[in-house]
Structure formats: C-alpha cells, structure tokens
Amino acid sequence: MTANNEKIALPPATKGTLEFINVIKDYGTGEPAVKGVSFRVEDGDLVTMLGPSGCGKTTILRMIAGLELPTGGQILLGGKDVTSQSAAQRNVSLVFQSYALFPHMSVMENVCYGLTVQKMKKPDAEARANEAIKLLGLTGFERRLPSELSGGQQQRVAIARALVLEPAVLLFDEPLSNLDTKLRRHVREEIRELQQRLKLTCVYVTHDREEAMAVSDQIIVMGKGVITEMGTPGQLFFAPRTSFVADFLSEANVLPATVTAVANGRASIELGDARFEMAADAGAAAAVGAATVALRPDVFTITKDAAVQPSLSAVIRKSSFIGKGVEVVADTSVGELFVFLPHEKLALPVGEEVHLAFPPDEARLTV
C-alpha cells in the first residue's frame, strides 16, 4: 500500500486494486470531511481505516462503495475510473455494522438476495449461496430466520451475502461493534482467516485499535479528514512518527524533552530528570532543541534504585490490578505518566516514591 505523493514503481492494477487520488468530500459545512486523501490498496490485502469518530474513515468507505460521490479527486478500481459510478455499477460489496439482514427471510433467502436482484436463476443462485453458506460454517441453518441466530451467526450470514456477489473489494463497516468481547475476538479471527484463504481485497473500518492490529495487513490512521500515518500494525505500534498515532494506537506517554546534541547517528536527550541517548532517526528526525518523546506504558519497570538509568523519579498517585497486570498513574518531573506492568499481581501503594526505568531504544521522537 502506498499513500499520498510517494513516487515509487507500482505493479499493474489488478481486479481488487483500489486507488484514491487526492479525493475530497465536502458536505458544505465549512470544513471538508475528507481533505485530499491519496492511497493505494493492493489486490489481496486487508487494509483498515482506523481513527476516532468524525475523522473521515466512514466517509471514505462510503465513497468506495459508491454510496457517496467525491467532491474532487479520482477513485480507481482495478485500474478503471469509477469516481462517478453509482453503487450498483461497482463490483463492491459492503458488510454493514447492523448486518442489515431481512428479518422475514431465511438464511438462504438473505444470502441469495443480491443474486436474485441481479436476475440470476434461482437454482444457480442457491448453488452459489450454498458454497458461501458452507464456507462460513452455516450449513444446517439455511431455513432459519435471523432472529433464530446468534450475533456471530448473523454476522456470518451478512458476510456470505456479500461474498456470493464475488466483489472485487469487500468492505466492512465496524462489523464487530454489536458483539460481546469474547465473540468479537472469535469473529475477527474468522474474518482474517477467510480473507487470507480467499485472497480477498478488503477495506475495514473500525475505531478499535486492537481489532485493527489483529486483522490488518496495513492500517491507515485517520485524523480530521487526512491520513495521519499508514503502515503495518507493527510499524505503527512500535515506531510511530506522530504523537497522535503514538497516543491513539498504544496509549503512549507523549512527553516534552530536549535534544541536547546530535552526533554519529545518536541523539542526546534530556527528559525531566532522565538523561539518555537514542538513535537520531528513531521516529521524527532529531534536531537540537525542543522535542517530543513518546514512551509506551508497557516499557517501564518500577525500581527503588536511583542508579538505574535512564529513569524518572515518580510518586504513585493511582494503581489498579486489572487481571492481566497493574495499571499505574504516577507524577514525574515531566508530568503525569501512565504505566502498565504486565507481570505485577498487586496494586502499588499510593504515595510511594519510586523510579520509572525504561530502555532508551523504546523511546520515539514524534511530531
């Protein structure tokens, strides 16, 4: 996947290749919902649009589906310009957040619906529907109504109904938001396994960072109508370039710091009462002067030994055991820090004075 104005050699567009070229969507409210967004999704990839409410991710999904037309720019599907085509003219299927199943129709009738609208003969439609029903593990449920199915089963019916249309691109709009936590994890694993097995091109919209990292080849992080960053889940989690992505994806502590020197590929950093060196290209380019450093909550360890460096002197203000570890809020010389200690089993005493040690290589310079 490529974005914006990167000038690199691209492979020829194939059936599921999707491209946005400087796409704008303006509803006339004073500020465009999508502001000149460009990206390319390669055939067979699952790309997630991730971001908070109102960032433009759902508007982009609706423009891919043809439910909204851009105010400017181009949308290419398989190398062909589909910018002005209606939803019915595009080879794209959308799995809705609410499943949008017809309550009076059986599973088989729901899965066949799009094919019957396309005037496919009933025996042919049912044969193709049976393939999708089998693929989604719904054999034996063909005559049941949606009300007789669990939430996970209804989601599978919605996916089967989309798959029978053999779309070039399959779109998911917050597909797991109506499921409980355990079922959400199970269904996202099913979606990812199915996508990889069938080599489907998918665009997936969510505001849930854990869900995005679990299913994606690439993630596009949106903020206020523009692409903030894009990359693999690992790149964005461990090596963000922006404070927004560091905070949004990993709840990183974004802290004011000073770069005191840059030499031989290393940057000397002052962070409160901590002094350390890090790679000068660890995130944003290092330059002497004021800077911003991001440190994930899980990189810290608690120590009483001030000689352990780098570390920040701290006072515990809040501490809670949450089952998988202990969450801590501490006051430091650079402000309030959020720390997660996965191996601790007891909350720390409030008011205790400690030192928060961290590996210098885990620090990231952000913009």
Rank of each mutant, 00 (worst) to 15 (best):
Q85P: 01
V288I: 14
A158I: 02
E362N: 14
A274P: 01
M105D: 00
Q85M: 15
G56I: 10
Q118T: 06
G234A: 12
T242V: 05
V187A: 12
R275F: 08
R62N: 12
I227L: 11
T48P: 09
S38G: 14
R364F: 08
Q118K: 15
A307V: 00
G36F: 11
G335P: 07
S216E: 08
E352T: 13
T139M: 11
V354I: 14
P233V: 03
A314Y: 04
S250W: 00
V117N: 11
N130G: 15
G272M: 02
T292D: 09
V157C: 04
Q196R: 15
D26K: 04
N5H: 11
L145T: 00
A246D: 02
A168R: 13
L198T: 06
L171T: 05
V95N: 05
A160C: 06
R188N: 06
G323F: 03
T2Y: 14
T228E: 15
R188P: 08
G56Q: 10
T201V: 00
F358R: 00
I220D: 10
L346R: 14
P70S: 06
E344W: 07
E251N: 15
T206E: 07
K7G: 09
L179D: 12
F358M: 01
A246G: 04
V339D: 04
A294R: 03
A290G: 03
F141K: 12
S147A: 15
N264H: 15
D273K: 02
P240W: 02
D298H: 09
A239K: 13
L10I: 03
M213K: 14
E211K: 13
D361S: 12
L145D: 03
P175R: 06
E353D: 05
A129R: 05
V111F: 12
D305G: 00
A363C: 08
E142W: 13
E193A: 15
R209E: 07
H207P: 09
D305I: 00
K134L: 03
L346H: 14
G137Y: 13
I60Q: 01
P123F: 09
S84C: 10
F321V: 04
A284L: 04
L46R: 03
F244H: 12
F96W: 05
F321N: 11
S333E: 07
M108Y: 11
A286N: 07
A286D: 08
L312V: 09
L61A: 11
L341G: 01
V187H: 01
K80M: 09
I302M: 10
A363Y: 04
Q97T: 07
P240Y: 04
G137C: 13
Q85W: 12
L183A: 08
F338N: 13
T29G: 08
Q309I: 04
A160Y: 04
P360F: 07
F238C: 03
R161S: 10
F20I: 08
G73H: 07
E42V: 02
D45Q: 15
S313L: 00
S84G: 15
V293A: 08
E42H: 09
E19S: 14
V203Q: 01
E193V: 10
Q235H: 07
Q196T: 09
E277R: 15
V288E: 14
S150T: 07
A132F: 01
G16H: 01
F244M: 13
A363E: 03
V205E: 02
L194V: 02
